[in-house]
């Protein structure tokens, strides 16, 4: 332990985090060390310096700014497209209509059925567009961080979904009916309720919203960390590593671009999964017992 302390004093602290790049670190040591200050991304990435209103609940940092930009852009796009809506859609209108149609047909009507979908389509569409807008900022140049990559916003979306499926269940069956159908699933021998009811209680009231929020946030966190890792490794290999390592920068840059494309896909996929799970939860709480 004490040896460790002297070790940390001799070498730059960040050097310890090079476990990911064991090959690179071996070569670096061969190169004579000391040149590198490779900064492996950490969770601090998502808590940048506060710009305005420090110490108040309205503290404004880069993530919040990105959220404001994304929300403004989404509202502007929607208002402009809706104002200019014509019978024969232009390119922007066709794109927006295609997405709205996608949510209505492939999410709401597919899961909830045509009749019930009518009630929930506006909510699901709003959720889908908002999550997509806040996710896609993760790959936008100059924004570079997803608005949903800190737990607050995903939690808000999850609370909206939570309130919706519980309210829908109560509206369809009444409080008692909703609790009975979700806590005591029919078609099970009575003694199984000893096991099933606590699990269902945990599932319906805690795990569903928690996993909705965590899934969205952790996906964006993981994606952002991968991108930062690739591009900071590129910068490190190209500028501060020894000549033997310069070639690695091509690989990491290529991986960074590939991951950027993958992140666009993940942003859309997560928005889709969030709304389809919300629709499934609504369906589970309103559907009649079989």
């Amino acid at each position: 332990m004490r040896e460790d302390a002297t070790w940390a004093a001799v070498w730059p602290h960040d050097f310890k985090e090079l476990a990911l790049f064991s090959l690179a670190s071996a070569l670096l040591v061969a190169d004579g060390g000391e040149s590198g200050g490779f900064h492996a991304p950490s969770i601090a990435e998502f808590f940048p310096q506060v710009i305005l209103f420090e110490g108040t609940p309205f503290a404004l940092d880069r993530v919040m700014l990105v959220r404001i930009v994304a929300a403004t852009a989404l509202v502007l796009i929607m208002v402009v497209v809706a104002r200019r809506a014509t019978l024969v859609p232009g390119r922007a209108q066709a794109a927006v209509e295609w997405l709205m149609d996608f949510v209505r047909k492939n999410v709401a009507e597919e899961v909830l059925g045509k009749d019930r979908a009518r009630q929930f389509t506006p909510l699901l569409t709003t959720l889908f567009f908002a999550i997509l807008a806040f996710n896609i900022t993760g790959v936008f140049i100059f924004l570079n961080i997803a608005g949903t990559s800190r737990i607050g916003l995903p939690l808000l979306f999850a609370v909206v979904a939570y309130v919706t499926y519980i309210a829908a269940g109560i509206q369809a069956k009444g409080v008692g009916g909703f609790l009975k159908s979700s806590l005591f699933p029919p078609g099970v021998p009575w003694f199984m309720y000893v096991l099933l009811t606590p699990i269902e209680l945990l599932q319906v009231f805690i795990l569903r919203p928690a996993t909705l929020a965590i899934r969205l946030m952790a996906n964006m966190v993981a994606g952002h960390l991968m991108l930062v890792l690739c591009f900071s490794a590129t910068q490190f290999f190209l500028l501060s590593a020894g000549p033997a390592l310069k070639a690695f920068s091509v690989i990491t840059l290529g991986a960074g671009f590939a991951l950027t494309l993958f992140e666009i896909f993940v942003a859309a996929l997560q928005a889709y999964i969030f709304v389809i799970l919300t629709a499934v939860y609504i369906d589970l709480s309103v559907s009649e017992e079989h």
């Binding site: 492939n106 597919e110 899961v111 996993t211 965590i214 899934r215 946030m217 952790a218 996906n219 966190v221 993981a222 996929l269 889709y272 999964i273 389809i276 799970l277 499934v280």
Partner: peptide, 20 residues
């Protein structure tokens, strides 16, 4: 495909729990 994506949502969250 729809059912698969719902399942993917459930499976994927386990890996992400490991991450967080």
């Amino acid at each position: 495909r729809t059912t698969m994506f719902i399942g993917i949502g459930f499976v994927e969250v386990l890996g992400l729990l490991g991450l967080i």
